[in-house]
């Protein structure tokens, strides 16, 4: 029983990081309808920007914020400079996905050129742990869970309580109709890519803090669980991605606690497949779509 509770706690901690990245991925997909595989490499970029800053004495949490902004800007530039022109030229969706795969590989190896291929770390973690309802979490994990929750809440308020949020949802729902209503959809798209990139960069640093040791493959390794979380929640649905992240994180830790840990991801993805068989649009797919049309 104790191990069950502990594993749920560990799952919430790792799920929070997955959720951070998955929400960013989902926001960007919802806005552009592009399956952006470069997202993983951008997350790695965030982790290495964090490393660069922490090595120069900046605190990990300030580094997380700065990396978020830098990756956000890189994300906008990536969309403006590469993806948007391809979309305008009518490039097929599959070809665009391949372009994002290729760009991800290029970015990953650019990082290797500057930082080297060996494992990196932000350094020794503080030994402080917190015990809550039988769960044991490190100080860093608690901070990341709180931070993720705060960012999710902020995103929720942005999407539901502000004009910008309504404009983003309108653009995501029907770009042409939104344009005809006077919404500057290109600007809204930039903001969505910025937001998505910020979450991506923050997730990269959070992931590097959680894993303690990482290398240039960091983002590529965690892209799959993040996409799984986004799909599980209902691709393009930020709230679904939040829940999906937690489900993937908790399922993975429970699998590690009670089965052969070598198959921790197999169990998590097995659950994903079963859930999608039951709800093909994901946990929040249909409900969110209805609500979005009504809003």
């Amino acid at each position: 029983m104790q191990l069950l509770i502990e594993a749920i706690g560990f799952g919430i901690a790792s799920g929070a990081v997955i959720a951070l990245g998955a929400v960013g991925f989902s926001v960007q997909f919802g806005m552009s309808n592009v399956l952006n595989i470069t997202y993983g490499a951008l997350m790695t970029l965030g982790a290495y920007i964090g490393l660069f800053l922490i090595d120069r004495g900046i605190s990990p949490w300030a580094a997380l914020a700065i990396a978020g902004v830098v990756v956000g800007a890189a994300s906008v530039a990536f969309n403006r400079g590469l993806l948007a022109p391809l979309v305008r030229r009518g490039t097929r969706a599959f070809a665009i996905v391949i372009v994002t795969v290729s760009a991800g590989v290029v970015l990953q190896y650019v990082i290797v050129v500057f930082a080297g291929p060996d494992a990196k770390s932000y350094g020794e973690q503080s030994g402080q742990t917190f015990h809550l309802l039988g769960m044991v979490l490190t100080a860093s994990e608690v901070t990341i869970v709180v931070l993720a929750a705060a960012l999710m809440l902020g995103l929720h308020l942005l999407l539901t309580r502000t004009t910008l949020g309504r404009a983003m949802r309108a653009t995501a729902s029907n770009r042409i109709l939104a344009q005809s209503c006077g919404i500057a959809t290109d600007r809204i798209s930039d903001i969505a890519w910025m937001l998505s990139g910020m979450l991506c960069g923050a997730a990269g640093v959070a992931l590097a803090i959680t894993t303690v040791s990482f290398d240039f493959s960091l983002g590529a390794v965690f892209l799959i669980p993040m996409i799984a979380a986004a799909v599980l929640g209902g691709i393009g649905q930020p709230y679904g991605a939040m829940v999906g992240g937690l489900v993937v994180g908790v399922a993975s830790e429970l699998a590690a606690a009670f089965t052969n840990p070598a198959y921790r991801e197999v169990v998590a993805f097995g659950i994903l497949i079963v859930m999608l068989l039951v709800r093909p649009h994901g946990l929040f797919g249909a409900a969110w779509a209805t609500r979005r049309l009504m809003a």
Partner: peptide, 14 residues
């Protein structure tokens, strides 16, 4: 037996 490069091994460590 553990997989490589997981975000966390907390459950295994427990």
């Amino acid at each position: 037996t553990i997989p490589a490069d997981s975000a966390s091994y907390s459950s295994e460590v427990a």
